[in-house]
């Protein structure tokens, strides 16, 4: 009896492992094919611009709001901590390094996943359900090239831009906290920022933004595009399930990738 239970457990473990490996392979092929589809795609630049508008301009308010509050909180918390050691003059360094190296890329990516990623996944899922994807294929148009490639290419531009904006607004927030609310000299804050941030930090920031953009948008597109393959649901429920899965997995991937990149670069 115990032997059978053990066998079942091993079998279940094996089947789950195989499913994960298969999923990873399928996702990698999907991403590679999406980039490959750029080669034969007509009027791609126009669609990249449109996708850039959807991902960039529409996400602007949330990036600005979260960015400013992140900076304000960092400035406030940082000031009180540094004040204990008489090092308030290092507030600019604390805020800037936190934002540039970690919080900027991670929080901007999470905001973009919540706004643009979820919308992309749901839209592709609905397009799959209403045979719009099949319609493209019958026209002899690559559905990946038309629907996914522009979004991926746009993400490679939009994520670094939004991250830069997030960091800039965050630094302004930190300055507002430190200078206007807590009485720190504005010059002290900004000179501390200038001294602290090195080119390597900026490179790390953009490298993270690029990686997060590529991983999250392709994950969201993958789940939306394959909504019809959802095992436990069909129709609207499949779209809902695939969108949820896309957002959850993208958020986890952002944090995991952040750890991996940081551990290699530090």
């Amino acid at each position: 009896m115990r032997g059978r239970a053990c066998k079942d457990m091993v079998r279940a473990l094996g089947s789950h492992t195989l499913a994960i490996v298969h999923g990873l392979g399928d996702f990698t092929l999907f991403t590679l094919r999406s980039f490959q589809s750029a080669l034969g795609s007509r009027r791609l630049f126009r669609r990249v611009l449109r996708a850039g508008f959807e991902q960039g301009v529409r996400c602007l308010p949330v990036i600005l709001i979260v960015g400013i509050f992140t900076g304000l909180v960092l400035g406030l918390q940082g000031y009180y901590v540094l004040n204990r050691f008489g090092s308030e003059s290092l507030l600019g360094a604390l805020v800037s390094l936190s934002l540039v190296r970690e919080l900027g890329p991670v929080l901007a990516a999470l905001m973009l996943v919540g706004q643009a990623g979820s919308a992309l996944s749901a839209e592709l899922g609905i397009q799959r359900n209403t045979e719009q994807v099949a319609a493209l294929e019958t026209m002899g148009v690559s559905s990946l090239g038309y629907l996914v490639t522009p979004r991926l290419l746009a993400a490679l531009v939009v994520f670094p831009m939004q991250t830069a904006l997030f960091v800039t607004i965050g630094l302004l927030g930190g300055s507002l906290s430190g200078s206007l609310l807590l009485g720190l000299e504005s010059g002290v804050y900004w000179s501390s920022v200038e001294r602290a941030v090195q080119m390597q930090d900026v490179t790390e920031c953009f490298l993270k933004a690029l990686t997060f953009g590529l991983l999250t948008i392709s994950l969201c597109a993958y789940h939306g595009f394959n909504a019809h393959r959802c095992r436990n649901a069909t129709g609207a429920r499949a779209v809902s399930a695939s969108t949820t899965r896309a957002v959850v997995q993208s958020s986890i991937v952002v944090l995991a990738a952040d750890y991996v990149i940081t551990s290699f670069l530090v």
């Binding site: 007509r42 009027r43 045979e131 319609a135 493209l136 002899g140 148009v141 038309y146």
Partner: peptide
Amino acid sequence: LFQSNALFDSLTALENVALPLEQT
């Protein structure tokens, strides 16, 4: 021609008709 028509709901009527010409 699909039973459901499979029209692109985010494109206007003209954009729908133009799509195969634009892409092929």
